[in-house]
């Protein structure tokens, strides 16, 4: 059951700084994902049980004030520029004490799941998953129709060569260029 949870006020500023440091960027990829990913991280958090939501916010604040832990000054992370924020979070992620590293773990997973499941990122990296899924659905429907015509559904499948489906055709996919 989702709640009406939202990052508000200073918490939103902190969450945005962490997301901004963690989203992927490539020179050839123009879109800035920060705001969209922040929204998705907020959605994720909204779906979590209350004690996990509390944990997410606690971790964000832990990262916000992590400067002294990694000998990086007292300035809150949200007041650093992006490069400095990335450097600080990397120091946290590389910290020798596992409990300190854990502060990065959940925010990193939420940001990664959100960013790398976006259609434009999938296509950019060569995994147009939505098109592939549609292609698979259509291909399987064809196989099921072949089965129906053959009146057989063997437990150990054989190549459907007689029906025009060769093993080498199975995963064939030529996506439309973006």
């Amino acid at each position: 059951m989702s709640s009406n949870f939202a990052f508000r006020g200073y918490t939103r500023r902190v969450a945005r700084a962490v997301v901004d440091a963690m989203v992927p960027r490539w020179p050839e990829f123009e879109a800035d994902l920060t705001d969209d990913v922040l929204e998705q991280v907020e959605d994720f958090t909204r779906n979590y049980p209350p004690f996990v939501r509390f944990g997410v916010v606690a971790m964000l604040y832990g990262l916000e004030f992590s400067g002294p832990l990694v000998l990086d000054g007292l300035k809150p992370t949200s007041m650093l520029d992006r490069e400095a924020a990335i450097a600080r979070l990397e120091k946290v992620a590389d910290h020798p004490i596992p409990q300190i590293r854990m502060m990065v773990m959940l925010p990193k997973i939420m940001v990664s799941f959100s960013a790398y499941s976006r259609p434009e990122v999938e296509t950019f990296l060569g995994a147009p998953r939505r098109a592939w899924r549609a292609n698979r659905k259509a291909f399987r429907d064809r196989l099921v129709q072949i089965d129906a015509r053959r009146g057989a559904d063997p437990a150990t499948p054989e190549p459907l060569v007689d029906a025009g489906v060769r093993p080498e055709d199975y995963l064939r996919f030529e996506p439309t260029p973006a």
Partner: peptide, 10 residues
């Protein structure tokens, strides 16, 4: 797959 790797950002 992105979650398999411990890093983030750049």
């Amino acid at each position: 797959m992105s979650a398999v790797f411990p890093s983030f950002g750049p």
